[in-house]
């Protein structure tokens, strides 16, 4: 049974397609927006229209920005000779939140998965190989998920970059900061033990 006019139902249907929202939560969100249409809905609609018109993918690294070359790639202080390879833009943003990396990024757009028909040509791997050669990259840091697909992609990239002259490293795996050993699974403890270092 329809709860409102056709336009509202269409809006609920669109909202329900967003990650993390189902039909019920989309309905709640739309109702909330309508109740605050002056303070929230209209500015949100304007902001969405603005981003839809200006957002674009950086042709160099795959990050999302509002120019063909994103701000991170334009920043000369980021030319440290290090490239951090991530699967998605969300991973890039997570790295930036940490403020621990001052080099540039390369967003693959996913991970290799034969079962999902995602091959090397579907990812930005050839572009990464070209960047390593063109930008005098000293180190490529693979910040990929510790899953089978993520690690398969890491092995593949390392193979592609063999002979490029760049050092290929990956993020450490082990005890999370603030983590308690008692709550870690066996695989994480084993990985942490293998990656132990001089204290």
């Amino acid at each position: 049974m329809a709860d409102g006019p056709e336009q509202i139902e269409d809006l609920i249907g669109l909202m329900a397609r967003l990650p993390g929202l189902g039909p019920r939560s989309a309905r709640r969100a739309v109702l909330h927006l309508i109740q605050k249409r002056g303070a929230l809905m209209a500015p949100l609609a304007a902001a969405m229209a603005d981003v839809a018109a200006t957002a674009r993918e950086c042709v160099r690294c795959g990050n999302i920005g509002n120019a063909d070359i994103c701000a991170l790639c334009r920043d000369p202080e980021r030319a440290t000779g290090e490239i951090c390879v991530v699967e998605t833009v969300a991973d890039l943003w997570a790295m930036e939140r940490g403020r621990a990396f001052s080099g540039r990024y390369h967003v693959l757009g996913g991970a290799l998965s034969a079962l999902d028909a995602v091959g090397p040509e579907d990812l930005r791997i050839p572009a990464l190989v070209a960047r390593v050669a063109d930008e005098a990259v000293r180190e490529v840091i693979l910040a990929l998920d510790a899953t089978v697909d993520g690690q398969t992609t890491a092995h593949y990239i390392a193979e592609q970059l063999a002979g490029s002259g760049a050092q290929v490293t990956s993020l450490a795996q082990g005890v999370p900061v603030g983590g308690e050993l008692d709550y870690l699974d066996d695989g994480t403890i084993s990985a942490a033990l293998r990656a132990r270092r001089q204290f």
Binding site: P120, T152, H155, Y156, Q160
Partner: peptide, 13 residues
């Protein structure tokens, strides 16, 4: 598939 590197990466896993 003929991509030896992809096979190699999966075989390593």
């Amino acid at each position: 598939a003929g991509d030896g590197a992809w096979f190699g990466a999966l075989e390593a896993q």
